[in-house]
Every structure is written in C-alpha cells, then in structure tokens.
Amino acid sequence: MAKKTPQLSFNDVLSALGSQRFDVAPAQEGAKRTPGAFQVRKFGCAAEIADAGDGTVLVLARPGYVLGGEISRILDRGYQKFLKTSRLEIPATADHLRAIHEFSEELKQASGATSLYNESLGTTSDRYVYDRVKGRE
C-alpha cells in the first residue's frame, strides 16, 4: 500500500525553502500578478508561488532560467532548445538545462509536490515547435 505524504501548509513550504538556501522574496507587483505571491530563486533559476487558498502551494510561474530579470520558458524546436522571454531568445546550454532541472526537483521536494517519472529524467520543455511540415503549427 502506498504511503500518504503529509500535505505541507504554505508557511511550512516557505520556511522549508528558506532553510534549503532558496532566496524567497515577495514577487514584483504588476498587472497580472497575484497578491501575496513569492518568487523563489536558486541556481540562477526562479519560479513564482502563492497560497492556493486552502493553505497549499500554487505554482504561478513554472521554473525557468532568469534572463534580464524575467523567468524564461523552454522552447523546443526539435533540433535545439531555447530559453525565451518576452524580449529575448537564446539557445539553451547544457548548464542552463541542468540548473533548471535541479531547481525544479529541489522545489518539488521542498513543497511536497508530486515528482513525475518523466520529469525526473531530465528537463521538459514548455512548448514544442517543430518545423517539419511547412504551414502547419
């Protein structure tokens, strides 16, 4: 029989992240920002989390590498992965992907989130864009 993992409260997760050397700070307020959101950083990567209302953690912005003060998304074009922000797009290096993967795994462990097998093997992309068939998305 599978063991049930105790659900951590949002405040417990914040203190656990702080004790594991994550930089935890209130997220910058903007037009689309959730009040009470926190930005969590480590290894040059970041994610935004907030209280889900029932005391658990809600991930607002998936983990990504920080470029120009903005959390990047991983874009997979089939032949190369790229880090993309609203203003910048650069080829992702192995060091970038390794940092994002390690950050994601440590964030899941500290927050008590489910760690999926396929995500534990390596970095997954946020968007897949292949150019094999012209004119089709």
Rank of each mutant, 00 (worst) to 15 (best):
I74P: 03
L116W: 15
S15V: 08
F38E: 09
S19K: 11
G18A: 15
P63Y: 06
I71G: 03
S125L: 03
A113Y: 07
F43Y: 13
G112D: 02
P35E: 08
K84Y: 02
V66L: 08
A61K: 11
H96L: 07
H101V: 06
R127I: 05
E137S: 10
Y79V: 12
A27I: 02
L17D: 00
L116P: 02
I100E: 09
K81G: 09
Y79D: 15
V129I: 10
A110W: 04
V59F: 03
K32I: 13
P35D: 08
L107Y: 05
S72Y: 04
Q80D: 08
G112P: 09
P26I: 07
R98D: 12
L75V: 07
Y128R: 14
E106H: 06
I74S: 02
E89N: 01
G112Q: 02
G30W: 00
D95T: 12
G68P: 05
L14Y: 02
I71Q: 05
S9G: 14
R62G: 07
R77N: 09
D23C: 10
D126N: 04
Q80G: 03
P35G: 00
P63L: 03
Q109N: 13
L88Y: 11
C45P: 12
F43H: 06
K134C: 13
A61F: 12
K134M: 11
F43W: 06
E70R: 15
I71L: 05
F82G: 00
L121E: 13
I49K: 05
G53Y: 08
T124M: 12
E105Y: 14
L8D: 00
L58D: 09
A50R: 05
I49S: 06
D76C: 04
L8T: 07
E137V: 15
P63H: 02
L8S: 04
G68Q: 05
R87P: 11
F43I: 00
L8R: 10
T124L: 13
T5K: 12
D131H: 12
S125V: 08
K134A: 14
G78A: 05
D12L: 08
G36N: 04
K4N: 12
L116H: 13
T93K: 07
S125E: 10
H101E: 08
V13F: 05
E102R: 13
V13G: 09
G36V: 00
T93R: 04
F43C: 02
I90D: 00
P63I: 03
T114E: 14
Y117I: 07
S104Q: 02
S72R: 02
D76E: 05
R62F: 14
A52D: 14
I49W: 00
V13K: 01
S19I: 12
E89P: 03
G64D: 04
A25T: 10
E106Q: 10
P91D: 05
